[in-house]
Amino acid sequence: MIKPNLQRVASIVTVAALTFSLNAAVASDLVINEEISLTNETAAPAHLENLTTIYSGWNFRKSETQSLQMDDFDNPGMIFVDQAIDQWNVVEGEAGKSCAACHTGGVEEFAGLRAVLPRYDEEAGGIQSMEDYINECRTDRMQADAWKWSESKMTAMTALIGLQSRGMPVNVAIDGDAAEAWELGKEIYYQPVGQLDMACASCHEDNYNTYIRADFLSQGQTNGFPAYRLKNAKLNSIHARFKGCMKNIRATPYKEGSDEFRALELYVASRGNGLSVEGTSVRN
């Protein structure tokens, strides 16, 4: 299963690199495996002051990249989902348990979870991302080592769990206990940083649907994460993406798994409330 997939990925990457076609946020539909219809364009949530319509990052990709995501057999990210399915049953740690040992209903138990994360967690006393919950299971319940925020086992597991919510609308809570972190996330989103002195909003709110040299800017939504990127041929976490964008503007990124990035993750997710969870997206 894995080998032929990898070969196909290699040839796909070549094709994608050679083909340049003009693009625009086309209003085509994102349908996966010819049966799962996703919401890739919808009215902006009420809290968003400067946008009326929100779009998935999928809309802004070239048709070659788009079609890779429209069939799970072509989606290179699914290789990692397969790996996570194997990992699900692996016994690790002092407690002698696998994920499956506790989650007896199977990974399907997690349908709906991706759509509401990150969220305020009373026990943790702050915002928790999917990575936090996975590591909590590993350290507390399995007595195994925590995974690094963006290491391949972690991004694969977030992909498998996220996939269970595919097609459900992103619906993170921004009020109540989450409000404080949400405000912080919003502040970070609009704060120009780095030597290039730009904010997330400079590119993803003021200039989406525009070329910045060879890159076609999207709204920087997170509903497709973890995202398989043709550029690095692996799954990428949300925090790794934030880090990359900050480094590009020559800003010192916050740490992956920091409270700042959790807050920013919550805020950015809330900008996508209403878009479908895509499972594992394909981007360039």
């Binding site: 940083v193 780095g194 900050m246 800003a251």
Partner: peptide, 12 residues
């Protein structure tokens, strides 16, 4: 007047 510049670009 920059916020959080990468260290290697600081003051440049």
């Amino acid at each position: 007047g920059f916020t959080r510049p990468l260290e290697k670009f600081e003051g440049k």
